[in-house]
């Protein structure tokens, strides 16, 4: 684990103010952290999504990173090509794929291919649990029962656990992170940058307009997800560890009440007590798996 102190973080901005991100945008938090973590080693590859918009328009880019915009399903493969170019031409840098959960749905085969080949890149899926850029439609990672514009009575399927899938896919580095804990995220990015090969970070990104909460509560919502145990922070770098921010919540009695997290969001307003009990059961199940993984790896 890499410990990150706020005062030591660089002041240079790689996400420039005055961009088109919504108020309280979690992607913006993630992108600025990426700059703090890896600075000008980053070369961004961005498929369609909110970040396409945030990146700027006309001749103005909101990034101090180089950034290549690419079709929705293509990003990790493009990064493969870029990584090859950097290596062959002796340029020091890391292709960083920054995509949403949409990119990881439609580009799942591409993600898998790059992972299998252990191609040199860091892939960050900034997961706001729906296709937000097109107007809040259900994605593979949308939470069970969450309302979206294509599941108006609540999603019927489970959230796809991307990070565990990538772990089983034998990625060289896998972590979950949260925009509620940016120092943890920055530490994980730095750790990832020290490892060769295919590195994957699943970043939990609560979206104010998409989930239906006030723009001031992005960080709070992300932290509540961790505190109630619904989002578990962990890291695999050859060894699987539950991250310190999540560690206490292995003990169910230490977790924040689930309702505190759910009731603050418009997408969960319709939940019945039975639904909440079922979500709690599923969270317990997730913890059982993650705790077991700590023993296995």
């Amino acid at each position: 684990m890499v410990v990150v102190k706020i005062k030591d973080l660089p002041k240079e901005k790689f996400l420039l103010p005055g961009n088109t991100s919504c108020q309280g945008c979690p992607h913006a938090l993630g992108l600025k952290s990426l700059g703090m973590a890896l600075g000008d080693d980053v070369v961004l590859v961005v498929p369609a999504g909110c970040t396409t918009i945030i990146a700027g328009s006309k001749d103005k880019s909101s990034f101090k990173f180089p950034c290549l915009h690419v079709p929705f399903a293509s990003a990790p493969a493009v990064a493969t090509g870029l990584g090859s170019a950097f290596r062959r031409l002796g340029k020091k840098g890391i292709p960083v794929v920054w995509m949403g959960d949409g990119g990881s749905d439609i580009g799942f085969a591409t993600l898998s291919g790059a992972c299998v080949r252990k191609d040199d890149m860091i892939v960050i899926v900034s997961d706001n649990e729906a296709y937000m850029n097109t107007g809040i439609q259900t994605s593979g990672t949308t939470f069970w029962k969450a309302r979206t514009t294509t599941s108006p009575t609540g999603k019927r399927e489970e959230k796809k656990d991307l990070a565990l899938i990538m772990l089983m896919h034998k990625a060289d580095y896998v972590a979950t992170a949260s925009v509620g804990y940016l120092q943890d995220f920055i530490g994980k990015l730095r750790k990832a940058s020290e490892i060769d090969g295919f590195r994957f970070i699943h970043l939990h990104s609560p979206c104010p307009p998409g989930w239906g909460f006030d723009s001031s509560e992005t960080v709070e919502m992300a932290r509540l997800a961790v505190k109630c145990g619904a989002w578990i922070l962990w890291e695999f770098d050859g060894k699987f560890r539950i991250s310190p921010m999540s560690k206490p919540y292995a003990d169910k009695s230490k977790r924040a009440p689930l309702t505190e997290y759910l009731k603050k969001q418009r997408r969960f307003r319709h939940l019945s007590d039975e639904d909440i009990a079922e979500i709690e059961r599923r969270i317990d199940e997730q913890w059982r798996v993650v705790l077991a993984l700590e023993d296995v790896f």
């Binding site: 420039l16 005055g18 088109t20 990146a55 001749d59 103005k60 101090k64």
Partner: peptide
């Protein structure tokens, strides 16, 4: 081609 600018959205 775009280049880094503050205020890309004004």
């Amino acid at each position: 081609i775009a280049r880094p600018s503050k205020g890309s959205a004004g």
